[in-house]
Computed example of a mutant assay.
Amino acid sequence: MTELALTADERLVLHALELIVKIELQGAAGADRLNRKLAQWRAADTRHEQAWCEAMTRWTALSGMGNELRAHFPQVNQDGKNRRISRRRLLAWTLGTVGLASLGSGGSWYLHQPLYARSFRTGHTQTLVVTLPDAAGAATAATSLELNARTGIDVRLFRSRRLVILEQGDVRFSVLHDRSRPFFVQAGAGTVMVRGTTFTVSCRAGALTVAVEEGHVSFYRESSAEKIDPERTLADAELFGGQLLHLRDGTLEVLRQADASAVADWRNGWLNFNDVPLDEALAQINAYRQNPIRLADARAGMQRLTGRFRVASSYDMPRILTEILPLQSRTLPDGEVELRSRS
C-alpha cells in the first residue's frame, strides 16, 4: 500500500479524528478520561483547536456513524474484558471512512460536503443582513449579504467554492476576495461567478437582473454552478462596475452604462424602475404588501413603469399606478387588488 504524504496540519486533524473515534468507542468512564485528554490537547496550541474544528466538521458529516463504529470494533470480548484496538487499525478505518484531501481524483467524499449550510427567508417588509463565516482571519472582512423583503436563499460553503442559491427575491452581495474559493450565485436560468466584488442579483417574476457596483463578475446561462469550470467554461457575459444585465424569456440584454446601485436602492427605502414591464415591477412592489396586486390581463402587464417610489408607499401603489398608467383597479373580497387595462 502506498504511503500517504500528509501535511503537518493534516496529521493534527487525523490525531483529533483518532481521539473522537476512540471516545465514540469507549464506555462512560473511558470517554471521560479521553475527553479530558482531548481538552488538554486542544488548549495546548491554536493549531490543535483548528484541527479539532476540522475533524468535527468531517465527523459531523458522517452523522450516525456510532453504530457502524461499534459494529467494526466491538467494545467487549466474551470474557468481559475491553478489547484493545490497535492504533494502526483504528487510523486505517478512520482514513478509509472519513477520507483525506490527498485521496484519489480531486479529493475524497467528505470534500463534497459543505462546511457551512444555512437557509434564510424574509417576509413582507422584512430585510436581513447575513455575514458568512468565510473570512480567512480576524483582520479579513467576511462576505456580507443583504436580503430584501420576500427573499429566499440557501447558502453552501465548501472547501473549494462558495455557493448561494437564490430562489426568489433580491440580494446585494459584498464578496470576500478568495482566489482559491470562487463564489457562485445560482438564480433562475443563470449563474453568476465572482471572486470578490459588490453586486446585486434580483430574481422575480421570471426575470433575472445582475447589477455590478464594483469589481467583475461572469454570467453563465447555466442553472447549475456545478457544471461551470471557471478555467474552461466560456461566460455568456462579463460585467464590470456600472454595468447591468437583464435576462427574461431567454433574451439577454447587457447595459454597459447603468446606475447599478439603483437596483439595490431598496436598502435606502426606495424602489427604482426604469422602463420596467409592470408585471416585473409588481413583483418588487408586492414584496412589501400583505395583500398583493394582481393583473387581470396580459396587456396590463406589458405597461412600462418608470419612476422612483418610497417603499412605505407600497400600499398606495394601486392609486399611484392608475394615475400614471392607463389602468383601473378594484379591491377583491380577499383584500387583493386587481389592475386591468382601461378599455
Rank of each mutant, 00 (worst) to 15 (best):
A5H: 15
A5G: 12
L6Q: 10
T7V: 12
A16G: 01
L17A: 02
E24Q: 04
A28Y: 08
A28N: 06
A28I: 05
R33S: 13
R36P: 01
K37S: 07
A39Y: 12
Q40E: 15
R42I: 10
R47M: 04
E49G: 12
C53V: 12
M56Q: 15
T57F: 02
T60L: 09
L62I: 10
L62W: 02
G64S: 03
M65C: 07
R70W: 14
R70P: 03
A71N: 07
V76C: 11
V76Q: 14
N77R: 15
R84D: 13
I85T: 06
R88C: 07
R89N: 10
W93G: 02
L95F: 07
L115R: 15
F120N: 04
H124V: 11
H124S: 08
P133V: 10
S144F: 06
E146M: 11
N148I: 04
I153C: 01
I153K: 02
D154E: 15
I165V: 13
F173G: 00
F173M: 06
F183G: 00
Q186F: 03
G190W: 00
M193V: 13
V194I: 09
C203M: 10
A207N: 09
E213Y: 08
Y220V: 07
Y220D: 07
Y220G: 03
E222N: 12
K227E: 10
R232Y: 14
T233R: 02
E238N: 14
E238P: 05
L239R: 07
Q243W: 03
Q243L: 01
H246F: 08
L247H: 00
D249R: 08
G250N: 08
V254F: 03
R256C: 01
Q257S: 09
Q257A: 02
A260E: 01
S261T: 14
V263C: 10
D265P: 01
R267S: 05
N268R: 14
N272Q: 12
D275N: 07
D275M: 00
V276M: 03
L282C: 03
Q284K: 08
N286M: 00
A287H: 03
N291Q: 11
L295F: 13
A296H: 12
A298S: 14
A312Y: 05
P318C: 05
E323R: 15
L325Q: 02
S329A: 15
T331V: 15
L332V: 11
G335P: 04
G335N: 09
E336G: 08
R340A: 09
S341I: 03
R342D: 14
S343G: 11
